[in-house]
């Protein structure tokens, strides 16, 4: 059986708590898709909800607002991993509910 728990925890800890060009609070906000000012909030929401709708203009708007490319990189990565984590956790909870065990 494959087991991604340890590697996934390390990934999430790294992007949220490790060194970066954005603050841990900004990365946490992107991960949670919550509390980010525009236009970055719109970019993060698109990444989380319907990434195929992200356009070059969304990235450009984030840069015009003052973010460097490295900061946009970190914010988008955190947004993607945050949404995937919520989906994964929801599915594991459904699995636990369906099987009645840990």
């Amino acid at each position: 059986m494959s087991d991604i728990r340890q590697a996934r925890n390390a990934l999430v800890n790294r992007i949220l708590e490790g060194p970066g060009k954005t603050s841990p609070s900004e990365r946490r906000a992107a991960f949670n898709n919550s509390g980010l000012a525009e236009p970055v909030g719109t970019l993060v929401d698109k990444v989380a909800r319907h990434a195929c709708s992200v356009a070059g203009e969304d990235i450009d708007a984030a840069k015009v607002s003052g973010l460097s490319e490295d900061q946009v990189f970190e914010i988008v990565v955190c947004a993607a991993i945050g949404q995937a984590t919520r989906q994964y956790d929801a599915a594991l909870a459904a699995l636990e509910s369906a099987t009645g065990k840990e």
């Binding site: 970019l43 698109k46 990444v47 989380a48 990434a51 195929c52 992200v54 990235i59 988008v76 990565v77 947004a79 993607a80 991993i81 949404q83 995937a84 989906q87 994964y88």
Partner: peptide, 9 residues
């Protein structure tokens, strides 16, 4: 669910 989001974004 991570990789496809990054590819699109």
């Amino acid at each position: 669910n991570v990789i496809t989001r990054l590819a699109d974004a």
